[in-house]
Write a protein that binds this DNA or RNA. Structure first.
Lengths: 136, 136
DNA sequence: CTCGACCCTGGACCTAGGTCTAGGGTTTAT
DNA sequence: ATAAACCCTAGACCTAGGTCCAGGGTCGAG
């Protein structure tokens, strides 16, 4: 038993071709096939695909998403290694979160200036993602 | 006076062709030209371009970035409108930040399970971006 | 005055991530 | 038993976001 590609696509909110594409790219595993060569997916494929779509919206490439998902699969392998990789990803996430937060406060500031009809000051939006470690 | 395209590219860390491309896409304004038809950019173009690159890493498309940057330019126009747009972007950012935070705690959890050699539990990574409002 | 390092335009080319089409088999409802 | 609605593969096609020529002008050092 399993889900046909159409059902998975419907529940995950993607095109069936996207699922075949993800399979070619190894983002999702190769599903079993029934006697007619139809793909039969385990139910949790739906969650996995949704995870992929959300992670993409957050700026991750399919390759990065694959790495995130592989972390748990490899778990059996070298645990300390997985741990290190996970913590490295955490650092990257912290950086992204900080950037989004400063972008957010820039927008809040802009909105306030606007409602104040106050003085403009130097553009808060451009300030938002300034430097934080890049060269110069 | 102003910066040639090569200088801007160098300081912003991008290709000169990228700057011409951004100009065609209206991500940066059309610069002045000198007597030889060379582009001459104001110094703050560098910040603007860096902002663009950072925002892209955070998952924004060039079109979205243009909108963010236009918020301040339009400021003179209808202030209340700009304010509303800014606050709408703030909501979107909050959602992104929340997603990244749950992804982060999934990874931290995974790292801990790993160092504990503890029981595996259901995959924390897939849990990370579950539902939060999507259909089903 | 000429060589190398710039700059210009127009258009071809590239990668990522899909999406669509053609040609053909399967399953289901009537 | 046949039409609608699925499924399959291979391969063409598409958008976003660049990147790379070709062919030609410009500027500074020696």
């Amino acid at each position: 038993m399993g889900l046909t590609i159409g059902k998975v696509a419907e529940h995950a909110g993607v095109n069936v071709d996207t699922l075949r594409y993800y399979e070619r790219q190894d983002v999702i595993g190769k599903p079993l096939r029934n006697g007619s060569n139809y793909r039969l997916y385990p139910a949790d494929t739906i969650r996995r695909v949704r995870f992929v779509k959300r992670a993409q919206e957050l700026g991750f490439s399919l390759t990065e998403i694959k790495e995130l998902l592989e972390l748990r699969v490899n778990k059996n392998a070298s645990c300390a290694n997985v741990r290190d990789q996970a913590l490295a990803k955490v650092d990257a996430l912290n950086e992204k979160i900080r950037s989004l937060q400063s972008m957010r406060s820039a927008l809040v500031k802009l909105a306030n200036e606007c409602s104040n009809h106050g003085p403009v000051g130097d553009c808060p939006i451009l300030d938002a993602l300034d430097e934080r470690g890049s060269a110069i």
